[in-house]
C-alpha cells in the first residue's frame, strides 16, 4: 500500500475558523478540499504538510447561486459533478460544463472540487512519480532536487498547468475570491497563475479560495477543446479555450484565447486574439489565428506525446475550438 504520511487534521465549519487556523499554523498547514490532487501528491512525497485544514465541512462555500442573466457564484467546494450537471451551467455556460465533464473520470468528479481544480499542482513526467523513482534520478528542482530534467539549463521549473477549467475561466473573465485573516480580495482568474512550475499560484498559503464569480451569460460564445491519449482518466496534454464577443453583423468585437498544458500557467494567445478582432470568423481567419496561437505554444518534453506533434496540435485544436464558434 502507498500510505499517507502522518498529519494533524482540522475540520473547521466556517471560513473564519479555517482562516484563523491557517494563520496560526503558518506555512506548515495546507488546505484540502476533495483531496484528489493533494492526497496522491502526499503519497508520492511531493508535499508533506504536517497540518491539513479541510474545507469539506464548511457548507457556505459549496453550491451555486445566481442565474445566467446575472452571472453565477460558484462555491469553491462545489464538486465537479455538481458543477457539470447544474442546469444554469449547462444552459448558460455549456463550454464550462463540457470542460468540467472532461476532467478525469466520473468517480473523481464526485470527489474533486472546482477550487481544487483551479489550485491544482503543476505536472511533469519527472515529478509525478513516487519517491523511489524520483530518488533514482536524484530528484528535480520542483521537489527535493536542484535540476530541471526537462531543460537542464532552465533556471525555473517548467512543470505544466493541467487544469481543464482554468483556461476557460480565464478567457471568460471569471474572478476568484480569496479570504484570509488579513482580509479579502478578488482576483481575475487569469491573474491567479505565475509562469513558474514551483511558485505557480498567485495566492498566499493562508488564503482560501472561497468562490468563483462568472459574468452574465449571453453576448459571448465559448468553446473548450482538450487533447489527451484516452477519452477518460487523462490530464490534458493540451487545452484550448476560445471566447468570442461578436457584433450583430457577425464581426468579432473581442476575442480571448487561452492555451493550457503547454506552460506553467494558462497562456493568453494575444496575437491570435488581435488577428480576430474586427473580422468575420471565416476559414481563412481561423487558420491565421490558429497559426499565431500555435507559434506561442512551446511544449517541452514533460508530458505524454512528442513535442513536435503537441505543437502541431496547438494549431489543430485552436482551429477546432474556433470552428465550434462559427455561425
Amino acid at each position: 500500500m502507498m500510505r499517507l504520511p502522518k498529519f494533524v487534521y482540522h475540520a473547521p465549519t466556517s471560513v473564519d475558523e479555517a482562516g484563523r487556523i491557517l494563520a496560526g499554523e503558518g506555512t506548515a498547514a495546507r488546505v484540502v478540499a476533495g483531496g484528489t490532487d493533494l492526497y496522491p501528491n502526499m503519497k508520492r512525497g511531493h508535499q508533506l504538510p504536517p497540518v491539513l485544514v479541510s474545507l469539506r465541512r464548511i457548507p457556505k462555500i459549496t453550491g451555486i447561486s445566481g442565474t445566467p442573466e446575472t452571472g453565477l457564484r460558484i462555491g469553491a467546494c462545489t464538486s465537479l459533478t455538481q458543477l457539470g450537471s447544474h442546469p444554469a451551467v449547462k444552459s448558460g455556460y455549456a463550454a464550462l460544463a463540457s470542460a468540467v465533464l472532461s476532467i478525469s473520470t466520473p468517480i473523481l468528479r464526485n470527489m474533486g472540487t472546482i477550487g481544487g481544480n483551479l489550485c491544482l499542482d503543476t505536472r511533469c513526467n519527472y515529478y509525478n512519480q513516487n519517491y523511489e523513482w524520483r530518488r533514482a534520478i536524484h530528484f528535480c528542482m520542483k521537489c527535493d532536487g536542484s535540476i530541471c530534467w526537462v531543460a537542464p539549463s532552465s533556471k525555473t521549473c517548467l512543470a505544466i498547468n493541467s487544469s481543464d477549467t482554468a483556461p476557460l475561466l480565464a478567457a471568460l473573465g471569471g474572478r476568484a475570491r480569496l479570504i484570509s485573516t488579513r482580509g479579502e480580495r478578488e482576483l481575475a482568474i487569469k491573474d491567479l497563475y505565475n509562469l513558474d512550475g514551483i511558485d505557480y499560484l498567485n495566492k498566499r498559503p493562508d488564503e482560501i479560495l472561497t468562490e468563483i464569480l462568472l459574468p452574465p451569460a449571453g453576448g459571448w460564445i465559448a468553446s473548450y477543446r482538450k487533447l489527451r491519449r484516452r477519452g477518460s482518466f487523462d490530464f490534458p496534454v493540451l487545452g484550448v479555450a476560445a471566447v468570442l464577443w461578436k457584433e450583430p453583423d457577425g464581426r468579432i468585437r473581442d476575442a480571448k484565447i487561452y492555451l493550457n498544458a503547454v506552460a506553467s500557467a494558462p497562456l493568453e494567445a494575444k496575437e491570435a486574439e488581435t488577428c480576430l478582432v474586427g473580422r468575420k470568423l471565416d476559414t481563412e481567419t481561423i487558420r491565421e489565428a490558429a497559426r499565431l496561437a500555435a507559434e506561442m505554444a512551446k511544449p517541452v518534453d514533460n508530458a505524454d506525446f512528442g513535442i513536435a506533434w503537441r505543437k502541431r496540435m496547438a494549431r489543430v485544436f485552436t482551429e477546432r475550438a474556433l470552428n465550434d464558434l462559427k455561425e
Binding site: 487534521y9 483531496g35 484528489t36 496522491p40 466520473p106 468517480i107 464526485n110 470527489m111
Partner: peptide, 9 residues
Amino acid sequence: QPILSCLIL
C-alpha cells in the same frame, strides 16, 4: 455515490 476509497480519509 461512487467514491475512490484510496483517496478519502
